[in-house]
Design a protein around this nucleic acid. Structure first.
Length: 270
DNA sequence: CTCCGATCCTGATGGC
DNA sequence: TGCCATCAGGATCGGA
């Protein structure tokens, strides 16, 4: 659900409405997310100015002079900018209220999301050990190759490990592997440098295209203006078990890997 | 260090 | 029509 492209889409959507504004308080309707939202959050944030909105992997950070509000959308979270007086829905758990009468509203039906304050977000336990940003210069096929030596786990699980590279979830792991022609079940440590270079390029291409399309909407995700993400119609293998491969016409297969679905073309991916 | 399974939650879906 | 079981899935945690 919200993976890197969806979180980046959300970041771009909300940044113009919150940057430069002062937070007047926080309304906590339900504190039970992935970790309990701190009771004192409103007191901590009141009076602080949002200087910027940044992203690290799938985390969003509202940066102020004194630290940052770390936000994770989990599997079903979304953020909207609304008038603070707008009646909340059943799953609108938190409002970050701004001094201009608007509020950043977190909706999260499944409550796998997170909302935490840190005086130094980059050093927070959730962020400090994340792998490189896949769209930065720190990430490359060569990096993946080096990092994967001696690893026995499947390439798809390796690619979805946020400590290897940040922000890639099930959808984009499947799509990237299809584009690179690599079968998701192949052990990560047994893939050649050349093929990792193709994978590095594929990861970048897929993420960039998805960001341009405003992310992927399956069920829950919506852009911060309420529109769906339009990458859904560009998915090549994800969710297409039994359908024809766009390259060769073979039937796309689905296998279960550790409680997750992997989709691949048996003819194009080895 | 590496890997694997359990875990949190609720809407959608399919079988009967 | 309605009930029930199953599934989806990010990332952490604990145990092997």
């Amino acid at each position: 659900m919200p993976e890197l492209p969806e979180v980046e889409t959300t970041r771009r959507g909300i940044a113009p409405f919150v940057t430069g504004h002062t937070i007047s308080g926080v309304v906590l309707r339900n504190r039970r997310l992935r970790w309990p939202v701190p009771r004192e959050l409103s007191g901590t944030l009141a009076g602080q100015i949002v200087e910027s909105v940044s992203r690290r992997g799938k985390y969003l950070i509202l940066n102020t002079r004194h630290g940052g509000l770390i936000l994770h959308l989990g599997m079903s979270g979304s953020l909207r900018v609304v008038r603070a007086a707008t009646p909340p829905g059943k799953f609108d758990h938190v409002d970050i209220v701004l001094d201009n009468g608007e509020a950043l509203r977190l909706r999260d039906p499944r409550r796998f999301g997170a909302l935490l304050w840190s005086p130094e977000p980059a050093r927070h336990r959730l962020l400090k050990d994340l792998g490189p940003e896949p769209l930065s210069g720190d990430f490359s096929g060569d990096y993946l190759y080096e990092k994967s030596r001696g690893r026995k786990r499947a390439i798809k699980e390796f690619l979805m490990d946020s400590h290897v590279v940040a922000g890639i979830g099930n959808i984009y792991a499947n799509e990237s592997l299809f584009l690179a022609g690599i079968r998701p079940t192949r052990p990560a440590g047994k893939i050649s440098r050349e093929r990792y270079r193709a994978l590095g390029r594929a990861v970048r291409a897929v993420l960039e295209r998805a960001i341009r399309a405003g992310g992927t909407t399956l069920r829950d995700f919506q852009q911060s203006d309420g529109r769906p993400g339009y990458f859904s119609r560009r998915l090549r293998v994800y969710g297409r078990a039994g359908e024809r491969c766009v390259k060769c016409g073979s039937a796309i297969r689905r296998v279960t890997m550790g409680a997750r679905s992997a989709y691949f073309c048996p003819r194009c991916q080895h």
